[in-house]
Computed example of a mutant assay.
Amino acid sequence: MKILAIDTSGKTASVAISDAERLLWEKTVFTKLTHSQVILPMVESALAETGLDYTDIDCIAVANGPGSYTGLRIGVGAVKGICLGAPHIKAAGVSTLLALAYNCVGHEGRIFSVMRARPKIIYGAVFESSGGKIRRITDDKVCSEEEFFSQMEFCENIMLVGDCAAELKAGRFATAENVRTAPVNCILQRASSLCMAVEDDDSLICTADELAVSYLQATKAEKDKAHRG
């Protein structure tokens, strides 16, 4: 199965193509441009440089949250648009936090995927990594740092990954030798991790119509509407 993956959920824009045996192409850019300006040109480059066409793609995986409201809509919207023009292609929505855990699939121990939602509030989930497999321990949640870490059962080897991993290591776990941060090339979102997640769990595959965003908290428009109400 050839998988095209798109991640626009955070500070990076990332595209990858895999064929279950190999990673054929990947590019990740920490960009000052909006994801809407760069993601489709990156997809076109990925197809051109691998000699593939949309007819060769079986599934498009996308990070469907949590993350940037605008970024998530751009990624999911792009996938729905591509599938509309190529209806044979299946879609797959992958938790951003699960994909971050796959960045560290070689780690043996617990992985804490953490992203900054707003000051002192994080998106977080915990996973167990062993023998090249990722197993979910907790659901994705949005909560205070205190709540998230107070409920966590610590173990011998802990890896922090995500856009606030280094901040949390320095602030909360500076002296904890059993807590490390992911390498710099793996600490932020990478589209190849979406490919691995789908290859390990085909239940993530759905139709483009079924693909939806998981914000975990109300959008600004929803908050404004509630405030007016």
Rank of each mutant, 00 (worst) to 15 (best):
R135I: 06
S113A: 15
V198S: 05
M115N: 02
E146W: 08
P87A: 07
A170Y: 03
A165I: 00
A191L: 04
P87C: 06
S113K: 03
A174W: 01
M159G: 06
C104R: 04
A174R: 14
V94I: 05
C164R: 08
M115K: 01
R136M: 09
E177G: 15
M152G: 03
V179M: 10
R172K: 12
A101E: 01
F112K: 11
Q151H: 10
I137H: 08
R135Y: 02
E147N: 10
E167T: 14
S192A: 14
V105T: 10
S144T: 15
S129R: 06
G131D: 01
C164Q: 02
V94E: 08
I137A: 00
E146C: 05
C83W: 10
C104M: 08
N185T: 13
Q189P: 00
R116W: 15
E128C: 05
R116H: 14
K133D: 03
T175V: 12
V179H: 07
G131R: 01
A170N: 12
I82T: 07
V161S: 00
R110F: 13
V126G: 03
C143R: 07
Y102W: 02
R180E: 12
D202V: 13
L194A: 09
L160I: 01
Q189A: 15
A176W: 12
F149N: 09
I134W: 04
P119N: 14
I137R: 12
R135M: 12
V114G: 11
A86H: 14
S129P: 03
L168F: 11
A197S: 06
R116Q: 14
E199D: 09
S193L: 02
F127L: 06
C83Q: 08
S95N: 11
C186K: 15
M152D: 12
G93F: 01
L160N: 02
R190K: 15
P87L: 08
C104L: 09
K169C: 05
M152I: 11
E108M: 11
G131E: 00
P183M: 00
A170T: 03
H88F: 04
I82R: 00
Q189Y: 13
K169T: 03
N185R: 09
D200L: 11
I187P: 02
D202S: 11
D200M: 15
C104T: 06
H88A: 06
L160E: 00
C195P: 00
A191D: 01
A166S: 12
Y102N: 06
R172G: 10
R180P: 00
E153Q: 11
D139K: 15
I111T: 03
T138C: 09
T175L: 13
G106L: 05
N103I: 11
G132W: 04
C143V: 08
P119G: 10
I187G: 06
L204A: 03
